[in-house]
Nucleic acid binder design. Structure first.
Lengths: 266, 266
DNA sequence: CGATCTGTTGATATCCTTCAATTTTGGTGG
DNA sequence: CCACCAAAATTGAAGGATATCAACAGATCG
């Protein structure tokens, strides 16, 4: 389900296609969401903790992250946002952000008006389901990070996040064969993994010396993905890239049918 | 917004009332969800990693937790589930659980059929919004746990989780004045916080010796909540207990109006 | 009322941090 | 295109927070 046909499509469509076959109509609805792009440079705050959330948006290019600033001045990165990621779809329900979002590399995002979200949910049950799937995937990634921070050593943590980023980029059609652009500094990785930048460096050295990865000029290549996954204890299960259960698919078809019926009536 | 009137209500209604004033009709719709209770003893698995998710459910009594088992045999607890918590509302979209759920103390849950969820979303926009709010709160708690594991020391972690549990129980009408039932062992706390049980013990000793808490016979009392919150760097902001932004409330009223109009037509 | 969890305490080990110095890389203006 | 500056990466040494091991005391439950 990963890669292939989606490669040509927008990252959003490619990503959601991992969940479920989308019709051409569905795909164009999704692509329409990405119409109004805005560009930002690196290290620009898109949202700030305490302020009210910006409109929902999709990442179309580049990379950003959610983070929290601690009283002592250090950071904790919470998640990375890559093309195809949907952010804060229901954010308008909250009065204040509980964390901030900042771009890492130059990034483009497309705002999604509140009404568009409501419309998708009311009139496109299949896409709505895909959005929920996406939200559940995001939650699963947060849980996986908790597992990393709680129970994996430094090597496992670094290995795991590298695997995750590569798999995510394979899923959104943005990677070239186990190699991805990785615009993160070692300090960024440390802030994401609860490690010091120095220690991240030593772990990366170790991976390089054992021919597991190369990482230079912001380009990461996994030379030995099985080994890296083994060090991480990585399974891609939590990304739920395997498609929908049959009865869920049937249920969605049923909902679509009901909706068509309703529309004919008046 | 916390406590008071909700105390008499079901935990679910009490919890969602922190987000938005609910009508009597809304409350009875929610209470109807809790109709079919099932009882479980302590340490009973409600869901198992790899198996297909059970129907969505609400916790009505007791306590459970989500967790992952590591290859070496140790556990990482991911979140605690307490009365009023909604679980896996859209779970039927996934083919396999990526973690397990186990009861901690004897627990009662009420299954929510898939159709009930769809119905809420289509016909009760206000309740649907409350469900989203609840989901966003859950996500925020996961992020906060990441912050704890990544950037807080042992004392901060323990302090933080205690504060969180107390605030959550205040929000669902289950606490008595800074005191709550805490059916967790020190090993459980360690598994949740990425600490050894031994170290959790030492931290608790420290809190007791400094008259910050008492914890005996599974009853936790915060003697000095400000101090504990200070040690934790705890703010309740991320729980979003402060109510809806005005324009979101207006928007929900608008949606309800549209819906009523639609219903009159045929 | 004995068996088994749970909690408590001390001693030792380890992984990771912090600090500090140096090199390398990357970006920017002349 | 080169010189220069700031940011990032690298390396070594020393210290600290927490894990692990082990033994015992207390609580809980059939």
């Amino acid at each position: 389900m990963v890669g292939d046909i989606q490669a040509a499509r927008s990252p959003l469509v490619a990503k959601l296609s991992n969940f479920m076959e989308l019709s051409v109509a569905d795909a164009s609805v999704l692509d329409a969401l990405c119409a109004n792009e805005e560009s930002f440079g690196a290290k620009v705050n898109l949202s700030i903790e305490g302020e009210s959330p910006r409109t929902a948006f999709v990442i179309t290019h580049g990379m950003a992250c959610r983070y929290r600033l601690m009283p002592e001045g250090n950071r904790q990165l919470l998640s990375f946002l890559i093309p195809g990621d949907l952010c804060d779809l229901q954010g308008y329900l909250l009065s204040a952000m509980d964390h901030s979002i900042i771009t890492i590399s130059p990034t483009r995002i497309a705002a999604i008006p509140r009404e568009a979200v409501t419309d998708l949910i009311n009139r496109h049950p299949r896409i709505a389901a895909a959005l929920w799937w996406s939200a559940m995937q995001e939650e699963a990634m947060l849980r996986e990070r908790i597992v990393s921070l709680g129970r994996r050593g430094a090597r496992g943590r670094v290995a795991h996040i590298l695997c995750e980023l590569v798999w995510r980029q394979m899923a959104n059609g943005t990677s070239e064969d186990h190699a991805i652009r990785l615009p993160l500094t070692q300090a960024d990785l440390g802030d994401a993994l609860g490690l010091s930048a120095v220690h991240v460096n030593r772990v990366l050295q170790y991976f390089r010396q054992n021919d597991i990865i190369t990482l230079e000029h912001r380009l990461l290549t996994l030379l030995d993905m099985p080994k890296l996954q083994d060090i991480a204890g990585f399974t891609r299960d939590y990304l739920h890239l395997g498609g929908t259960p049959i009865d869920a698919a049937r249920y969605l078809t049923l909902l679509e049918g009901n909706l068509a019926l309703q529309r004919e009536k008046p």
